[in-house]
Design a protein around this nucleic acid. Structure first.
Length: 503
RNA sequence: GAUCCCGUAGCUCAGGGGUAGAGCAUCUGACUUUUAAUCAGAGGGCCGUAGGUUCAAUUCCUACCGGGAUCACCA
């Protein structure tokens, strides 16, 4: 921890000490803020300023303009900016202390609201309190509105690394980014509301798991000292939620973090938020209807429209979403029928399609690769891809009429996966066989294959009703509804490589 | 892991083999309705680190360090 301070920071420390010498508590305990900046900005009327004859505002100083015996500054609170007018005659005790204030300090101001000659709604200060002295220099972007009303930003705080590492600075300086996070909160609230109003129960299941399951991914491993056992941070909560359906709940859902020890890019963060829901007596057809309705409801509540714009493309969330079988989509975009092909036939098909494949890849891996290169980028409008090969989906129920296929869908929007769902496998014999096949893959070196969870199998043997399950990647849904291109822009604190001390 | 790009003042960036540049921020002075305030002045830099080429390197070369993007990995 370096305590080296630059000249500007040293000067701020000196100012702080000077204020303390003058008997001012630079870090007081509270302030009676009576109104938000936004309320003033939206409700002030020149005809009748009386409701604002005595307001107390507070916020962080963003700019200071001193003109001798008068000073203007802009302060920002959570809601908006407002200008403060300090006049020497009106602040005999405080005015000379203004020079000890800096951009970044937090102040509280009592005064009356008026409009300046330049038309700016402003608080004329009668009393000023310092609420916090800032010892670090803020990045200092400047904004200007040109004649066409366009906002021009100078010296933007735009370095993505610094923005992610020091998100608090990003939030202060790039005030608008908070809109994304407000929207994120609203999306989750609306989702909860949708589920709760249908009587489904929000639950919490273990994050520390003795066995990990419910998805194919490498886990994070940790250690419990008292029990002296390794535990895994969950990669999914699926198997626990199904145990609750076995226990007699008919609708359970959980919104929480999963952890996957894999690569990071604009669609992946090692910890991410997912929602999983299980509803008894339903199948994947019902779940598709519900998913459509859920997403359209949320989009309308959050954006006021079911039309999205993402990456320059207009996307309509309109019932019904397209439903297409996996092999039909593959045929559509590759011109090849890939069903019932052997591993080697799939491999040569991939070669023909110029899809690069690892020599050792198995049949499902090849199929997945062809899909993600040739099909997925084209699925811009909402598309349920349905009916996957059984080998790809160890927890999904076999298709009621088609051999070798399971009842599963994934929802693609804007070319990325938003949701994944099955008619849940509830035949314990079939489930055991599939998990044992996974265990074989695992023994063969596939680190992502699932492990056999005997207690889960026990629960299935006790009996789980027919059930439909759905998982939605919340981060990706937020990206879709906010237009953000990187998962890092919808997470306050995305995972970053640790900062190493520079040589 | 591969490829490409970046590293110069507190911030955003320009420059270029010969004393290091701008705007903002900071400091001093002027200014009692300014708003990218303005005006006059000032301070602030191991030009990421190390080595090489050179009379001379912040600049060219190499390596390293730090970071980013794309790809690979990863539903």
């Amino acid at each position: 921890m370096s305590l080296q301070r630059n000249d500007q920071e040293l000067r701020r420390l000196e100012e702080l000490e000077e204020l303390e010498r003058l008997g001012i508590n630079v870090f007081p305990y509270s302030f009676n803020k009576t109104i938000s900046n936004k309320e003033i900005q939206t409700n002030f009327r020149d005809e009748d300023p009386s409701p604002f004859a005595n307001v107390s505002v507070a916020g962080r100083i963003m700019t200071i303009r001193t003109m001798g015996k008068a000073t203007f500054c802009d302060i920002r609170d959570e809601s908006d900016k407002i200008q403060i007018y300090f006049k020497q005659n009106d602040l005999p005790d405080f005015y000379d202390k203004l020079k000890l204030l800096d951009i970044g300090d937090i102040i509280g101001v009592e005064g009356f609201v008026f409009r300046t000659r330049m038309g700016e709604i402003t608080v004329h200060a009668k009393k000023v309190e310092i609420l916090c002295k800032s010892l670090r220099v803020l990045p200092t972007p400047k904004e200007e509105i040109d004649e066409e009303g366009n906002k021009i930003v100078y010296d933007a705080f735009a370095d993505v690394e610094q923005r992610y590492r020091k998100r608090y600075l990003d939030l202060i300086v790039n005030h608008h980014i908070r809109d994304t996070f407000k929207k994120r909160a609203k999306i989750i609230t609306e989702m909860r509301h949708y589920f709760d109003s249908r009587g489904w129960l929000e639950v919490e299941t273990p994050i520390l798991q003795p066995l990990y399951g419910g998805a194919t991914a490498r886990p994070f491993i940790t250690h419990h000292n008292a029990l002296d056992i390794d535990l895994y941070l969950r990669i999914a909560d699926e198997l626990y939620l199904k145990r609750l359906i076995v226990g007699g709940f008919e609708g359970v859902y959980e919104i929480s973090k999963n952890f996957r020890n894999e690569g990071m890019d604009r669609m992946h963060n090692p910890e991410f938020t997912s929602m999983e829901i299980y509803v008894a007596y339903k199948d994947y057809n019902w779940m598709m209807d519900m998913t459509e309705d859920l997403l359209i409801t949320i989009a309308k509540k959050v954006n006021g429209t079911e039309i999205l714009e993402y990456d320059g493309k207009e996307i309509k969330l309109e019932k019904p979403f397209r439903r297409a079988k996996m092999y039909d989509l593959l045929l559509e975009y590759t011109g090849m029928n890939l069903r019932n092909l052997s591993r080697d036939e799939l491999y040569s098909a991939a070669k023909k399609l110029n899809v690069e494949i690892d020599e050792k890849a198995g049949a499902m891996k090849i199929l997945d690769e062809i899909f993600s290169v040739k099909v997925q980028p084209n699925l811009i409008q909402p598309t349920f891809m349905i009916d996957y090969p059984v080998e790809m989906s160890p927890l999904a129920k076999k298709h009621r009429t088609e051999d070798g296929i399971v009842e599963r869908f994934e929802l693609f929007i804007a070319g990325f996966e938003v949701a994944n769902a099955f008619s849940e496998l509830n035949d314990p014999r079939d489930q055991r066989q599939r998990l044992e096949e996974q265990a074989l893959l695992r023994a063969g070196g596939d680190e992502e294959a699932m492990v056999v969870d005997e207690d889960f199998l026990y629960a299935l043997e006790v009996g789980m009703p027919p059930t439909a399950g759905l998982g939605i990647g919340i981060d990706r849904l937020v990206m879709l509804l906010t237009g953000e291109k990187s998962i890092r822009d919808v997470l306050f604190f995305p995972q970053m490589r640790p900062e190493k001390s520079k040589t």
